[in-house]
């Protein structure tokens, strides 16, 4: 389990150890191939297991057949998944938030519960145009768009639409091919689309959704930090160079120490911003944390590659993927610059 013990009570420990088992059994073995050959959609093989582990309805209230997971626990789960595959984590993040958006906006969703739930993907920040039944708009980067059976579009002003895929008028534009590859992120183009149903997220609901998306991305960054640390530490313990295993050289210990520190800080920040003691994450804190952790994730991933020397540059080693995934999480859900300028606006200064 990745999270420091201080954040774990009995319930969380039980849940996270079951998630850990699921990750080891079902995600880790296919993470590499799913990144190498995303077009084969191997990542979808994790869905039944995810359903069994309660990860397909994690945020839905129990009375609606969901797990009613609190935000912080959900983030710990996301980090756990991301340590094996950031793409898998982002795919399940999008799915769970899509369901939450439907729930909060009162849009009916007639799908089976639990394991039988079809995969949803989420497009946020979309500029939606047109009257109901004539929906138009676009969204740059939608993980899972090519894999999901249902698409939930959340417009900038809180308009929510549920669309069953495939659907007339829904097209994919640019296909992203850099990081989070297994989730096959793509540009979404909507023209004269008739959604299955529509609704609206009011101010607080929209803020909650945005905050959870940012925090989810931040948790994925925490997962990348953990994965970087564990890969680097493992390699440093067995690579011999300069008369010793490299883990004994101060330079290497410093780099590992920096990753260790990033990991500690990552969980502290997630806990703080997710309202560890209870309550929902606020979107200001969520954005600040995501920005910070995305930077650290890239730094740690880069160092993990560096610690592997030439081997780190080879795809089969699996650490270069961490760098590519982290670089995507610097720009998604929003690029840093935009985010920082936005934060200033949110302060009201």
């Amino acid at each position: 389990m990745l999270a420091p013990r201080m954040y774990l009570d009995e319930t969380r420990t039980a849940l996270l150890s079951s998630v850990e088992g699921f990750v080891e059994r079902e995600i880790s073995p296919l993470a590499f191939e799913a990144d190498e050959h995303p077009e084969e959609n191997d990542i979808l093989k994790i869905l039944p297991g995810a359903g069994e582990s309660g990860l397909l309805d994690a945020l839905l209230p129990e009375e609606r057949g969901g797990q009613g997971m609190d935000p912080f626990t959900f983030l710990l789960v996301t980090a756990e998944l991301a340590a094996a595959s950031a793409a898998a984590a982002v795919l399940l993040l999008g799915h769970n938030l899509a369901l939450l958006a439907l729930e909060l906006s009162g849009v009916g969703n007639d799908t089976a519960s639990g394991e039988g739930r079809p995969l949803h993907c989420l497009a946020t920040g979309t500029r939606l145009r047109g009257p109901a039944g004539e929906l138009g708009g676009r969204c740059d980067f939608v993980p899972g768009l090519l894999q999901a059976e249902r698409l939930v579009v959340v417009g900038e002003e809180g308009r929510v639409a549920l669309i069953s895929l495939p659907c007339l008028g829904v097209r994919t534009g640019y296909l992203f091919d850099h990081g989070l590859r297994a989730a096959r992120p793509a540009e979404l183009l909507l023209k004269s689309v008739s959604p299955q149903s529509e609704g609206r997220l009011e101010g607080e609901g929209l803020e909650r959704l945005e905050a959870l998306l940012e925090m989810g991305a931040a948790a994925a960054c925490a997962g990348i930090i953990c994965a970087s640390l564990s890969a680097a530490a493992e390699y440093a313990g067995r690579r011999y160079q300069g008369g010793d295993i490299i883990g004994e050289h101060q330079q290497v210990r410093l780099m590992l120490g920096e990753m260790e520190a990033s990991r500690e800080v990552a969980f502290a920040l997630l806990a703080g911003a997710a309202g560890f003691g209870g309550g929902d994450p606020g979107s200001r804190a969520a954005r600040a944390v995501r920005r910070f952790l995305a930077e650290r994730a890239l730094g740690c991933a880069c160092d993990a590659v560096q610690l592997h020397g030439g081997y780190g540059y080879m795809r089969e080693q699996g650490v270069e993927r961490l760098m590519r995934d982290a670089s995507c999480l610097q720009a998604w859900p929003a690029p840093s610059r935009q985010l920082l300028l936005g934060l200033r606006d949110m302060t009201g200064a």
């Binding site: 740059d140 980067f141 640019y174 992203f176 091919d177 890239l298 670089s327 720009a331 690029p335």
Partner: peptide, 19 residues
């Protein structure tokens, strides 16, 4: 890394070069 971040998620002809 910084240039790629500045590009954000915008699909554009420069993106594959930056990646």
């Amino acid at each position: 890394a910084r240039c790629l971040e500045m590009l954000g998620t915008e699909p554009c002809p420069q993106r594959p070069w930056l990646e």
